[in-house]
């Protein structure tokens, strides 16, 4: 068993559970699914940049560059922004959910669709 294999399985599980939750009728479950899929995508990017154990991409004091065995900084930059963006999106989605449920009186996505007036 290698780290890559186990991490790949974790990616698969996160995607599967996230997608399953996003397909449910209850709106809160959709939001939890959204969060899980965000985490899954971050982990996928992290796995795609080759894994290096223990050495962050930080140059030691006085050195011109990080040691050659350091982890991939670009993927980390990508994931860092992705984490924060996911948080922003989730906050927005939570506010939207809160307001929608109060307006329609239901947390059932199928009922919300039916109550939508015809354009």
């Amino acid at each position: 068993m290698t780290v890559e294999a186990l991490l790949s399985v974790a990616v698969g599980v996160l995607f599967a559970t996230g997608l399953y939750l996003m397909l449910r009728r209850t709106i809160v479950r959709l939001l939890i699914g959204l969060s899980l899929i965000g985490n899954a995508a971050n982990l996928l990017i992290f796995v795609a940049a080759s894994l290096r154990r223990g050495v962050p991409p930080i140059a030691p004091e006085g050195a011109a560059a990080p040691p050659p065995e350091a982890a991939d900084p670009l993927a980390q930059a990508l994931i860092l922004t992705a984490i924060v963006i996911s948080f922003g999106v989730l906050g927005f989605a939570l506010a939207l959910t809160d307001r929608t449920v109060q307006a329609t009186g239901t947390d059932d996505l199928d009922q919300m669709t039916e109550e939508e007036p015809e354009p």
């Binding site: 924060v84 948080f87 922003g88 906050g91 939570l94 506010a95 809160d98």
Partner: peptide, 15 residues
């Protein structure tokens, strides 16, 4: 900006 964004959301959602 991050402080502002997070607190805007926290204050708003705390209602």
């Amino acid at each position: 900006l991050v402080v502002g964004v997070v607190l805007t959301m926290v204050f708003a959602l705390s209602a």
